[in-house]
Design a binder for these strands. Structure first.
Lengths: 232, 232
DNA sequence: CGCCGTATTGAGCGCTCTCAAGCTAGGTGG
DNA sequence: CCACCTAGCTTGAGAGCGCTCAATACGGCG
């Protein structure tokens, strides 16, 4: 079982490969042979990975599945902070407070790799190349999802679809999305209501830009989508 | 002149103090005595620090003054990405692309310390404590300014005023702000128009929450402001 | 003093929200 | 297998917040 997990394609490009005691993949760290992934964690749909005020100990790499992080606002609404897909890393936000500020739950059955932050720091210090890579990754996160600042609902939704298609590493077709989240989740992420999300998706379908089949969305006219995202 | 600069209070808590060849303050790095701040840069009001597509070489610590970073959208509007006050660090966003994505300009006459990123990496690798501190700082940035996601204009403006009052390290009174930016800048940052910013500030004044005198704003009722920011 | 950029204030419009009513798909039990 | 149930999605009507356009006021600076 673990063997099959470790041979998954996700591992090949994983930033944390040096943590993996996976000899077959040649990923063992020569300098720190004692460091390994603490454990794999299986999560059922809707299962919680961590909650606000939970102590921060680990970073997580998504191996399979999709997770979301969110805060609950004063009026009870969910403010979704991010969706996380395979190969993406979760947990940086909690480093400086030492405790999590968000909730993280699985949107689908998922498998995550748990990295002890203490081990992470040690390895980072011993391998300068990794340090450089991690700084790059974090820098990337500082710019990511800037489309949340776009003004119109249509712009944000177009950009969201493009973002998903670039991150959902579906085997064959980048233009066929299988949305793992509800319309309400999308709305809570883009600061829109579920009704507005639905209406705009419908309109895009009427205009032959996308085709909707429940959770399945086909991006028929990627160029037009890109133009909409950029404000035309 | 340089001496007086280096003795400023800003230096005392500067994360990059190890880069400073400032013996009097005891801040010289014993392990890397050759690393020093590359140079101080004086900027006049409206002077540019870097432009989009400029190659990324340096991180900057604001020593005196205020800067803003922004992108220009397709329709020509400025999308302001951040304001930077003394002791804050600028430049992380460009690490992963190797070139700047934003423009950075001074809102007031300013003085910034330039840190060569290569030196930064070297020092980071040699001093584990600094590495930890930097990761903390960056983690903090991932959460900062999350009030941009609040829904109502009033909420965002209230949160913006609170944020400024916590960062503008004015000598005496945290409740007296001297805004270095225009209403339009505030709007471009909070995704509002200058008119809306002006109207809401006026309303807050009518309700005795703040007192406005051009660029000077007094926070008369901080509790109420906090409540507004949190959505009540 | 007169000019010009910035700020304030007003009127009207449009996008997105709220509230509400169907609709669809999938699951459950008879 | 079908009737029913429920959660999620779609669609509609009306309201409100923030935008656009426009006029006026203010202040710094030559």
């Amino acid at each position: 079982m673990h063997n099959s997990i470790r041979h998954s394609s996700t591992c090949n490009h994983c930033t944390f490969a040096p943590f993996c005691n996976n000899e077959e993949a040649g990923l063992i760290s020569t300098k720190n042979p004692h460091l390994t992934i603490k454990q794999f964690r299986h999560l059922k749909r809707n299962e919680v990975l961590f909650l606000p005020k939970n102590k921060f100990h680990n970073l997580y790499v998504i191996h399979q599945g999709v997770l979301k992080t969110y805060q609950t606002e004063a009026d009870g609404k969910e403010l979704i902070r991010g969706f996380y897909f395979p190969s993406e890393i979760l947990g940086y936000e909690a480093i400086h407070t030492g405790q999590h500020l968000f909730s993280a739950v699985a949107l689908t059955d998922s498998l995550v790799c748990e990295i002890l932050y203490e081990d992470f720091l040690t390895l980072l210090h011993s391998e300068q190349e990794l340090q450089k890579k991690i700084l790059n990754l974090i820098s990337q996160q500082l710019n990511a999802r800037s489309y949340l600042f776009y003004s119109s609902a249509e712009q944000r939704i177009a950009a969201f679809l493009i973002d998903l298609s670039s991150r959902l590493s579906s085997p064959e077709n980048k233009l066929e999305l299988l949305l793992p989240m509800s319309r309400e989740d999308i709305g809570n992420y883009l600061r829109l209501t579920a009704e507005t999300v639905s209406r705009i998706l419908s309109r895009m379908q009427k205009n032959h830009i996308i085709a909707i089949n429940h959770k399945k969305i086909a991006l028929n006219d990627g160029d037009r989508l890109m133009h909409i995202a950029q404000g035309f």
